[in-house]
Every structure is written in C-alpha cells, then in structure tokens.
Write a protein that binds this DNA or RNA. Sequence first.
DNA 1: CCGACGCTGTACCGATCGGTACAGGTCCGC
DNA 2: GCGGACCTGTACCGATCGGTACAGCGTCGG
Lengths: 185, 185
Amino acid sequence: MTKPTGARAAAIPALAEVFREHGYAGASLALLGERAGLGKGSLYHAFPGGKAEMADAVLDSIGAWFEAEIYSALRDDPDPHAAIRRMLSETDAYFRSGRRVCLVGAFALSDGRDRFAERIAGYFAAWRDALAGALHRAGRAEAEILAEDAVLSIQGGLVLARALDDPDVFGRLLGRLERRLCAAP
Amino acid sequence: MTKPTGARAAAIPALAEVFREHGYAGASLALLGERAGLGKGSLYHAFPGGKAEMADAVLDSIGAWFEAEIYSALRDDPDPHAAIRRMLSETDAYFRSGRRVCLVGAFALSDGRDRFAERIAGYFAAWRDALAGALHRAGRAEAEILAEDAVLSIQGGLVLARALDDPDVFGRLLGRLERRLCAAP
DNA sequence: CCGACGCTGTACCGATCGGTACAGGTCCGC
DNA sequence: GCGGACCTGTACCGATCGGTACAGCGTCGG
C-alpha cells in the first residue's frame, strides 16, 4: 500500500520531532534512526543525502503543511477574518498550545541558519505576506506592519512559553492577536 | 593586574559569542578554546566543570548585565517612562539592532533547555516582572499583560530578524514597543 | 524456479567529541 | 638562587559523530 518512497514520508514526522527537540547539530543519526524506527541503512537508503537531506525534507513538509492549511486560506478565503481566525486556531493546535516549539524558528536562531537560510526566510516571508494580504482585504491600515508584528509575536510566544515552561503564555498571546487582527478597520 | 580569576572573566564574552552562534551542543571545546584564545588546559583550569560550567558562567554574566543595566532601573527609577525608554535603547544596543541573537532565547528553544531551565526561566521572569512593575508605577492598566507581550515580542523580533536576515524588523518592533509602553495611561 | 531488485542490519571508516593527565614553563615570595 | 604555586600546551582516553560498504534478506516478475 505504500509507495516506493513511503518509508521516507512515514519517517518525516519522527525526524521533525527530533530536529525540533535537539536542533540540527544536536540531532544525531543514532537518535534520528531510533525515533524513526529505521536502521542506519534504511535511513540512508531513504535519504541518500544524509542528515542535510532529512532536514530539507522536514522543512519542505512543514512548509507544505502551512501553505495548505494556513497561507492559502489567508490568500484566497473571501472572508479574511475567518481565514485569520482559522490561522490562529490551527497555529494553536500545531504548536500544541505552546508546548511545542517552532522548528523553523529554532533553526533560525542557532545551527543550520546558514545551511537553510533561504528556506527559513521563505517560510516566514510567506506567512507574513499571506497574513498582510488578508488584513489588507479586511480593510486594515498598515496591514504589513500588523502582519509582521503578529508573526514575530507568535515566535516570541513560543520562545517565552518554552522558557518559562508555561504554555498559557502562548494561549494568552493568541487571544490578544485575535483581538488585534480582527478588530474593526 | 588581573585577579586570579581574570582569565575566566576575560574569556566569558568570547565564550558567550560562540554559544550564541552555535548553541550549546554546537559549541565545541575546540571552537570555544580557539575563540577565547585559550588552550584546552587553560580552559579547564578556569572552568573545571567543563562546558557546562562555561555556559553557567556565561548565563550568570548575561543575567548580571541585564540586572544592572535594565532591570534595576525598571524597578527603582522614579521616572518609569525614562526607565522603559532606557530599556529599549539598551536592548537595541545589546542585540546590535537585531543583528545579534539572544543566547537565553536560543538555549530555551533547543539543546540546553533542560540543563539550564531554572536560569532561563529566571532571566525572562525577572525581565517581565521588572517591566510590569514600571508599567504599574506609570499607572498603566494590565501592566502584567503588557509586560509579557513586550518581552515576548523582543524575542520574536530577534527570531524574525535573524530568519529574514533583516535587522530592520527588530528596529521597527522597538519603535512600536515604545509607543505601546509609553502611551498615556 | 530463479535471478534481479529493493530494503535492512551490521561492521567499519576517519574525524571529532568532551574530558583527563601531566610534564614543563612562568613567575612569585623568600 | 630557589621552591612552589599557578598556569598552559600536548598527548591521550573512550565514546560518539556523520557517513560508507556490503552481505544478507524477502519479494517480486518472468
């Protein structure tokens, strides 16, 4: 039932979790293989490019998920406020209400920044631009500024929630964002 | 002219820079020693506890700097708005207008979170609480919420500035923060 | 029934990891 | 001039790193 590349796709979520928790440098092949349930042989069969290709695949997968679940609605939904609310609730679910960290943000901060710079920049730029478009369609002034501030706040919320070990920080932020982003024009 | 522990103190800024750029796991002893201008022997003489003690010392040094330059003024300055403005300009300088990353935030996101959890939490909690006190003294309602949002935004601003390789993101954020934090009560 | 192919475990590679041991050097009070 | 405390470079440790090679395996089409 699985395509030839099925093992690859199946392994990606586990690999993502390891990169998320340990960073690029900290994610060892031993750990990656163990958590993916794959021996080193299988791992290198599915990802001939090694660790870098695994990280590439994980970033691709994350980018595709956000594109499909969040950005596209922000761009195309005729009701921009609905798209924004959907963004907030999907974001809440994706980051497990602040208990989970943003892999792209973590990569941006430390190791792997240079290696994956374009992909990282693209991820955030797409988010900011899609959100700015929705805000613009909703008739808000300074949509770009508002969007930049929202994207940045989400990242900061994840950092602070993790640092204080208090997921509510993230929940409170999302509440504030809904008020800020869905206010009357 | 240097105290017995002079080499230790002198090495800390260089060590901090390496941890900042490579994370805890990514900062190797070879790199640490090279950048500090110290051989392995000297490094372990100054920091018998090894890498963990180096990171401890770096975190202590950062905490002390923020306490002296920012938190204490937020707590004690009779003019809370002046203290807040000072916080913003010192923050701008410290993070080189967004070109530099927050080591504590980076540690919080990936490796070293568990190892340094209390210290990381303390750093952010002190910032948030000191700022909330200043806002309260300035007569602002919901000072705690405002403070939490500001601290989180600064972290997010650093993440996004780094991710987009665009320091202006951080500068724009600081401008917004000044307006938000120093608005009329 | 068989060879080809896709997949997997395992052994192994050189490099590097964090950390230790220690021989010598430097510099001080005496 | 001397002894000793402090400091430092270097050799070395076992473990693990990312990555490779390959033999064995089951599963197919023919």
